[in-house]
Design a protein around this nucleic acid. Structure first.
Lengths: 196, 196
DNA sequence: GGATCATGCAAGCAAACACTTGCACCTACG
DNA sequence: CGTAGGTGCAAGTGTTTGCTTGCATGATCC
């Protein structure tokens, strides 16, 4: 019964490199070290195999989470963001592929975002708590801020390899820099700017 | 000589929908309303056709730019950012595909980012000018700020269709919200936060 | 020991693929 | 008028793709 696992792992690897069209059953079987026929006997057809493989990836648990009750908000956000960025960066080739196949296969792309969607909701509720606490400005645009921070992290994860000159700092310090700006953006009152 | 143009346009459309592997010569010819043989007589092989078609897209001029000498910085940034976001959003399916094929074809993906790369450099020099002017904080992290704003815009453009619930505001107001947060982030001095 | 079941191997099938050839057509230009 | 060049059409090439079949092998369980 271990053939199934080997095939699923190989399917994810080959899909990341070549996409669903390029992930041929022969190549998946070769990478898995398994006969091609076994693949069809286990999964019936290529489509079911890919669906199961990609579903498994999107279901793997995400690491780290924000504390329910905020303490040192900026420090907690830095830890959380750098963990999230590292996670996305490690899976960047798979993420790029999933995004790229959205036109062809919207469900797969969408399901691959179920993890990040949970993370986004977590961030939003954390920000709301901060607002209740009075830690950040009452008029802060938390919805846009959450989208902006998560967008910046996602773009960093998938864009750093593609456009290296756009990121004049390492992955390790990226999250801290983003969070610092993010935190200034939601902390400052509208009437309290540098110019005053 | 108009067959060439029709084929190139069709190639871009089909590539956006199906990727380079899915963009078959038959389908491109069909969409172009041209015989498949004409395609080979004009471009020799599929690879050269796709290369020329994708190069043409990445070479089309970008609209709008930041003024050389900043006036009302926040307003200028809003105009610029919303124009940039609209532009990316209009090309989102093509961008997603190009990103998705980075593993397979790094040069194409990279060349498709030559436009955004110019835009990024423009933003950076604009921010440096603002810093010289004293409009924004002298210790502001302009490199990270530029990456963050452009990343947020890119992620919005390619992610809004994929994860609609992550963006609780319309495309039209997105840029303004991002820029406002961005501007607060780089305007506020480190010692001048909401808590003081 | 015998039955069951997952697997490997060799071979093959029909479809789709990139690409070619030969010929007829039409338009433009001298 | 005649020639040259771009195009359409029909047919076909060899390769790759998803998927199937038949049979041998090895482990597992009763």
């Amino acid at each position: 019964m271990e053939a199934r696992e080997k095939i699923l792992d190989a399917a994810v690897r080959v899909f990341s490199e070549a996409g669903s069209r390029g992930a041929t059953t022969r190549r998946i079987a070769e990478v898995a070290g398994v006969n091609e026929v076994t693949l069809f006997r286990q999964f019936g057809c290529k489509e079911r195999l890919l669906r199961e493989a990609l579903f498994r990836v999107s279901e793997r648990p995400s690491f780290g989470s924000l504390p329910a009750e905020p303490g040192d908000a900026e420090a907690e956000l830095v830890i959380w963001a750098s963990g999230h960025l590292r996670e996305l960066y490690a899976a960047s080739s798979w993420i790029r592929r999933s995004i790229g196949e959205f036109e062809e296969n919207p469900e797969v792309s969408a399901s691959s975002c179920s993890g990040p969607a949970l993370v986004a909701r977590e961030l939003r509720s954390y920000l709301d708590r901060l607002q209740e606490q009075g830690t950040i400005a009452a008029d802060a645009d938390t919805g846009a801020a959450a989208a902006m921070l998560m967008g910046a992290i996602l773009a960093d994860a998938i864009g750093r390899d593609v456009m290296p000159d756009r990121y004049p700092f390492s992955v390790d310090e990226a999250a801290e820099r983003y969070v610092r700006l993010f935190f200034r953006g939601i902390s400052a009152r509208a009437d309290l700017s540098f110019r005053d």
